[in-house]
């Protein structure tokens, strides 16, 4: 399935659709957000893509511990790298968006924005994967590196989910649709999202995620070529 071409073309078509429909179709008229609500199709998709890529990385780590196949180690580190890349893009785009909405129009300070639960969750995820790569870098023995980093990946990912679930219950949120916020912006909450927007949002998530997976598979294949002598197939 991975080497088939159809899902790469699907990713391309979905993203073309995202851009055309995302810019041209009507969106709800809302104060503060105004036209920037269209960022939903790009910025939020980065986070969704990140989570999916981290999940795939987790899956490959589990697979590594079960079968000790070096391919799984390469896969899990590549997906983690792409996930972190998406996360950084999400942070960067989020920063731009925050500047015109929460900071300028709602009068929040940068400090209060950074304490926002979704941002804390994202920061934790990025720190975890940063630590993951530091850990990987500190080994010289390939086999040991694969094993220990897989253990850390599994542990950290398993701790990440309860954290993401817990934090919003501790800190008030600025994000729409989150518990504790009262701004009725039509995003993120499933029951709240405008139906035209939903028609673009979901394909956009799939499109961006597929693009991420594609680039990750390229990275994996490149690593496999580089390490041909180690794998010995």
């Amino acid at each position: 399935m991975v080497n088939k071409i159809w899902w790469k073309i699907l990713s391309f078509l979905l993203l073309v659709y995202t851009i055309v429909a995302g810019f041209l179709l009507p969106v709800p008229r809302l104060n503060i957000l105004n036209e920037t609500i269209r960022n939903l199709y790009f910025h939020v998709c980065m986070w969704m893509g990140m989570m999916v890529l981290f999940a795939i990385s987790f899956y490959h780590s589990v697979k590594y511990l079960r079968h000790q196949n070096f391919r799984s180690d390469i896969a899990s580190s590549s997906y983690a790298a792409l996930g972190s890349f998406f996360g950084i893009l999400g942070y960067a785009t989020g920063f731009l968006w925050v500047n015109v909405t929460w900071v300028t129009d709602q009068g929040q300070s940068i400090g209060s924005v950074l304490k926002e639960p979704k941002l804390i969750g994202a920061a934790i995820a990025l720190l975890i994967y940063g630590a993951y790569f530091v850990l990987r870098g500190s080994f010289t023995d390939i086999d040991k590196r694969a094993r220990v980093s897989a253990v850390y990946n599994i542990f950290a990912f398993a701790m990440l989910f309860p954290s993401i679930w817990i934090i919003p219950r501790l800190v008030g949120s600025l994000h729409p649709g989150a518990p504790g916020s009262d701004s009725g912006n039509p995003a993120l909450d499933r029951t709240d999202l405008d139906s035209t927007m939903r028609m673009i949002f979901y394909p956009a998530i799939i499109g961006w995620t597929l693009l991420g997976v594609w680039i990750a598979t390229l990275k994996i294949r490149l690593e496999l070529i580089k390490n041909k002598n180690i794998i010995n197939e």
């Binding site: 804390i120 934790i124 720190l127 950290a156 954290s163 817990i166």
Partner: peptide, 12 residues
């Protein structure tokens, strides 16, 4: 480095 991001939610 390894532990802080993991412990952060518990600490909060």
């Amino acid at each position: 480095i390894l532990g802080f991001p993991v412990i952060l939610p518990q600490l909060l």
